[in-house]
Computed example of a mutant assay.
Amino acid sequence: MLDVAPVHVKPRTAEAVQAAIAEAGAAGRTLEVVGGGTKRGVGRVRADGVLSLEKLDRVIDYQPEELVLTCHPGARLADLEKLVAAEGQMLPFEPPHLGKLLGAKGKSTVGGAVAANLSGPRRIKAGAARDHVLGFAGVTGRGEVFKAGGKVVKNVTGYDLGKLIAGSWGTLAVMTEITLKVLPAARAELTLMFFGLDDRKANEALTKALGSPAEVSGACHLPAFAARRPPLKADMSVTAIRLEGFEASVFARAETLAVLLKPFGRLQQLDAEHSRDFWGHVRDVHALVGDPRPLWRVSLPPAGGWKLSGQVAGEMLYDWAGGLVWLLSEAEPGEVRAAARALGGHASLWRGAGSAFAPLEGPLGGLTARVKAAFDPLGVLNPERLA
């Protein structure tokens, strides 16, 4: 049984995870579930103890020829990226490392990326983190061990629980093993850049590029405020479009886009090395690091993402062609959320006072409550995280 005093459990096996959750449930206690701790400040968790997965960090199986990687949830993203890069492969959803942005000292883990369903700039082409989870093993808040999905790219196993767990922020179950689909890394890449476009013109250019056959794998707009910050230190706004693939294809598509986007001004190119460096900074939102203002992550229909600047006072960075907006603003939380809803999206507060996530209401709220009751009826895991 868990002690009366607060505990900090660091299991090294799936069996130890199951024992810790079962004991907490039997004792009527709650647990905060953490990996590397980089997103620990997102949302409030009031728990009696901490269940840390930092010691559950091994790569269990990697089969490059099958494009499949199985690991523990505490495996660090940086280590996994080096592992697959050595085989000419990549994590296709380009998970962000947000420790610096959120002022955290820990290292980003694969379990944290999947639990929060976090994806980088390549999401517009490759899909979200949840789309690359082939299977996982976990422990529910009931203390029950279960498995979902499989370890092959093509499998049919009933309910796709991977998509349910991704984005649940550890409130339903604790993953003890994750199997991901990996993909071959691009042979070549380059980035096309416009300078000096306002938010509306930038959105028009990015929308046109995404609607073309060019297979864009990154589309972002950094207004002057964000572009002036390190590491870019540009004198004006920057609008960027990434192309990846075989070298001949990349250059042919770049020429096509240069003609298509000629009305928006002169395009400049970044070579592969500088392109990778640039998108790494966009992925990790380095332009907004160190700013003390409340930080919002706003999901919107891409075509209308630029309109948020006219609704809420603050500084913004647009990724996913406007579908993802990182916002620094002192505006009231209700004002930010209302503006996001009016534009067909939603907003979450990633740094600042107040609830991180807006409460779900109506049928969706009822469904969410029933799912939570099925997986964690006693509310053992990450209580109030999504409140």
Rank of each mutant, 00 (worst) to 15 (best):
L2H: 06
D3C: 13
P11I: 08
A14T: 03
A16V: 05
I21E: 08
I21G: 12
G25E: 14
E32I: 04
G37W: 03
T38V: 11
R40C: 12
G41D: 14
V42E: 07
D48L: 05
D61C: 02
D61R: 11
L69W: 01
P73W: 02
A75Y: 00
L77N: 06
A85L: 05
P96I: 01
K100T: 07
G103T: 02
V110P: 00
G111W: 00
G120K: 10
G120P: 04
G120A: 12
R130T: 00
H132C: 06
H132R: 12
G138F: 00
R142V: 02
V152D: 07
K154Q: 09
K154L: 04
Y159V: 14
G170R: 10
T179F: 01
K181E: 09
A186I: 04
E189M: 14
L192D: 08
F195L: 13
D198E: 12
D198N: 14
A202M: 13
L210G: 03
G211P: 10
A219S: 15
C220M: 12
L222K: 06
K233L: 10
D235E: 15
S237E: 08
I241P: 03
F246L: 15
A248V: 11
V250D: 10
F251I: 06
A254L: 07
E255A: 15
K262I: 05
G265M: 07
Q269G: 07
A272S: 15
D284W: 08
H286A: 15
P292N: 11
L295A: 14
L295V: 09
W296Y: 12
G305C: 09
S309I: 02
L317S: 09
G322L: 06
W326R: 05
A331I: 05
A331R: 03
E335V: 07
A338E: 05
A339S: 09
L343C: 09
A347Y: 01
A347R: 03
G354F: 02
A358N: 09
G365K: 12
G366L: 14
G366T: 13
D376C: 09
E384S: 08
